[in-house]
Design a binder for these strands. Structure first.
Lengths: 202, 202, 202, 202
DNA sequence: GATGAATGAGCCTTCATTCAT
DNA sequence: CATGAATGAAGGCTCATTCAT
C-alpha cells in the first residue's frame, strides 16, 4: 500500500495526489488506508520514513568496512555507488525524499533534512578517517568547513542522481557516475587535508 | 504583488498556497490578481520567470570578464559569490525556483530545468576557458563527463546555498561559502584538465 | 447600446450574458452602461420593453382597419403577416421577448405575459368583430373559451414563428406562414361562431 | 433528488439555480449530488431527459390505438387530454422542458427540440391516418405544410398548457382544454384534407 | 462626462475524513 | 473487519457593481 502512496506522491506531489487515487492504485478502499495510518499527513510521513531508511541503509552498507582494510576514498566511492544504484532503482522513493518532502511544510522538511544530515555525517566520518590515515592534525579543518564540504558533496551527489536518471539513450552506470563525482571532489579533499587551499588569485 | 506570491509559494508550495492568502498578503483583493494574471498557473509561472531571470542575471554578471583579464577560477569564484549572495538575499525566490517549481507538474519543472541548464552552461563555458588557458587538447574531457561535472557543481552550489541559509548564529558570508566550494571542487577540475584522474584503489 | 444588449441576452440568456461582453459589443465602457441604466435588471427590462413595444406596434398596425371595410379574417391575416415579418426581421428581439424573458424570474415573466395578453386581446377583439359580422349572439362563446382560443392562436403563431425562422434552404415567406396558420384555425373559428362544435366521437 | 433539481431549475433557470440550493432542497449535501451526477450540466441534462421521456410517454400512450378502432380525431383528442393532464400534474417538469432547456446553450436546446420533433411526428402520423380515413390522395398536402400544421398544433397546445395552468379560481380540466383546442383546429384540418382552403378575401 | 482599476459576494467543484452496514 | 455512502470546509475563478482620475 505504501508503494502506491509513494508512487502517487512522487508523481503528483503531496497536495495533488488524492487519497482516492492512492487507495484505488493500491487496490484497497479508502477507509482501509485510514485504518492503517491515521491521516494523509501520517501516510506521507510513513512514506518518507520508509524511503529514507532504505536509502540511508543502502548508503551505510556501501560505506561499511568490516575488516578495517579499505582506505577512505574507496569507502566513499562504494557509498556513492550504492547511492546512485539505489536512486536509480527507486526513483519514486528518491523523488519523495528529495523533492516532495522538502516542499510541503516544515515538519516534512525536517524529515528530509534529517536524512541529509545523516548522510552528511557519514561523509564527515569518512573525512575523519581520511584525515587520520593521512596523519593530519585533528583540527586541520574547522568543524564548520567540514560540514560545508559534506553538504557540498551530498548536494553534488543528489544533483548527479537526477542527472543520471534523466531519460537518455545510454544512461551512465552507478559506477561511472560515482567516478565522475570522485574526480570532481576527491582531489580537493586531499588538498585540504594536506593544508593546501584554493585562494582567489590576487 | 509578485512578491507576495513568491513568498506564499515558497512557504507553502504551489498547491497549498491559496489565492486568497496571496491576495491578502499582497494587500489587494483576489479579483485584482486575476486581472493581472489570468490564473494561478500563470501567476506561478510569472513568479518562476521573474526569480529565474534575476538569479541567472546575477550569476552571469558575476562571471563576466569584460577585459578578458581574469583566469577561469577567479571568474567561477565571482559567479559563486554572486550566486550565494543572491540566494541569501532572496531566499523565497530561491525556494520557488529551486524547490517548488520542480515538484508541481511538467511545465513548471521545465522552467526550472531551463535555469539549471543555463547555469550549467555558464560553468561549462568556464571549464572550456580553463582548458584553453591550461593548453589542454579540446577533447581531454568527454562531453558527457563535462556535463556531469557541471551538474555536480551546480548541485553542490545549490546544496551549499541551503546550508548557508540555514538559521545559525553566524551565517557564513557568500565569499566564505564560495571559497569552501572552490576548495571542494577546483583541485579536481584542474587535475582532470591535466589528465590526472581518480581511480578506485585496487 | 440596447442593440448589443438584446443580441447578447438573446444569444446567451440573461445570466450568461455578462455586462463586460455587452459593453464591449456596444463599443462603450461598462460604467457608461450603468449611467444610462441602473442595473443589469433594468437593462434587461429595457430590452424587453423595447422589443415588446416594437412587436405589438407592428401587429397592431397590421390589424388596423382605418376605413372599417375589411372583414375580420382579412384583418387577422394581415396581423399575422406583420407578426411573422417582424419576428423574422428581429430574431434577437423575438428571442428576448419570447424565450429569455419567460425564464428568468417572475418580474420579467410578467412583462412577457403582458405582451401575450395584449396580442391575445387584439385577437379577441377580432373574434368579436367576426361574431358581429356573422350576426351571432354576443354570448355564443363563453368568455373563458374565447380566451382559450386566443391563447391557442397566439401559441400557434409563436411556434410557427420559430418554425419559419429555423435555418432552411427556402424559408417560407411571412404570407405563406400566415396562410398556413389561417388554414389551421379559421375554419374552426367560423364553426364555433356558428355554434358548431367538435365533440369526441362516442 | 432529481425532483429538487427539476423544481430549482424550473423556478430559477439553469444559471440562477445554485447547486447549494438544489442540494439543500433535496435534503442532501452538495458533494452527494456530485457523486451521482458529475456536473451541473449533467444534472440539468438528466432532468431534461427524465421529464422529456415522461411527457412523451404520456402523450404516446394517449394516442395509442391498440385495436385499430378509433378515428384519428379521437386519438388526437386523447393525446391532447394526456398532454394537458401531464403538464398540469408536472408543472416544473414542463417548465424545464418547455422553457429552460430552450434558453441555455445549444446542447440543451437540442434535447428540447427533439421532444418537440417527436410530438410533432406523432401528430403528423395522426394526420396521415385521418387523410387515409377520409380517402384523400397522399399528396393532398405538401410535406412542408404538414410540418407547419404540426408545429402550429404543438405550439397551440403548449400555449394552452400554460394558459390552463395559470392560477385561477376554477382551472379548466384537461378534457375541456383539449376540447377547446380540437374546436380550434380540427375543422381546419378536415377542410384541408378535403382540399378546401382559406384564402385572403380579395 | 467617460473610464481604468478595484472589489464583495457567490458559484461550481474537490477532497480529506468519517459513519452505518 | 472492510466498505459504500456521505459531508464540512475550502479553493479557484467570475461577475455585477462602484470609485478616483
Amino acid at each position: 500500500m505504501l508503494d502506491a502512496a509513494v508512487e502517487g506522491f512522487a508523481r503528483y506531489g503531496y497536495r495533488s495526489a488524492s487519497m482516492d487515487d492512492i487507495a484505488e492504485a493500491a487496490g484497497v478502499s479508502k477507509p482501509l488506508v485510514y485504518q492503517y495510518l491515521k491521516s494523509k499527513d501520517d501516510l506521507f510521513t510513513a512514506c518518507i520514513r520508509r524511503e529514507s531508511a532504505a536509502l540511508v541503509a543502502a548508503v551505510r552498507a556501501g560505506t561499511e568496512d568490516a575488516d578495517g582494510l579499505l582506505p577512505a576514498d574507496r569507502r566513499l566511492w562504494n557509498g556513492l555507488c550504492a547511492f546512485f544504484a539505489h536512486t536509480a532503482a527507486h526513483p519514486h522513493g528518491w523523488a519523495v525524499v528529495h523533492q516532495q518532502a522538502r516542499t510541503e511544510g516544515e515538519s516534512f522538511a525536517r524529515e528530509a533534512a534529517a536524512v541529509r544530515a545523516e548522510i552528511a555525517e557519514l561523509v564527515t566520518g569518512l573525512l575523519g578517517v581520511a584525515a587520520r590515515d593521512a596523519g593530519c592534525a585533528d583540527d586541520a579543518l574547522a568543524e564548520r568547513e567540514v560540514s560545508g564540504l559534506a553538504h557540498a558533496l551530498v548536494g553534488a551527489a543528489e544533483s548527479l542522481a537526477d542527472w543520471a536518471n534523466a531519460p537518455r539513450q545510454e544512461p551512465p552506470s552507478a559506477r561511472e557516475t560515482a567516478a565522475t563525482l570522485m574526480n570532481f571532489c576527491w582531489a580537493g579533499m586531499e588538498n585540504l587535508l594536506k593544508g593546501s587551499r584554493w585562494t582567489p588569485a590576487p
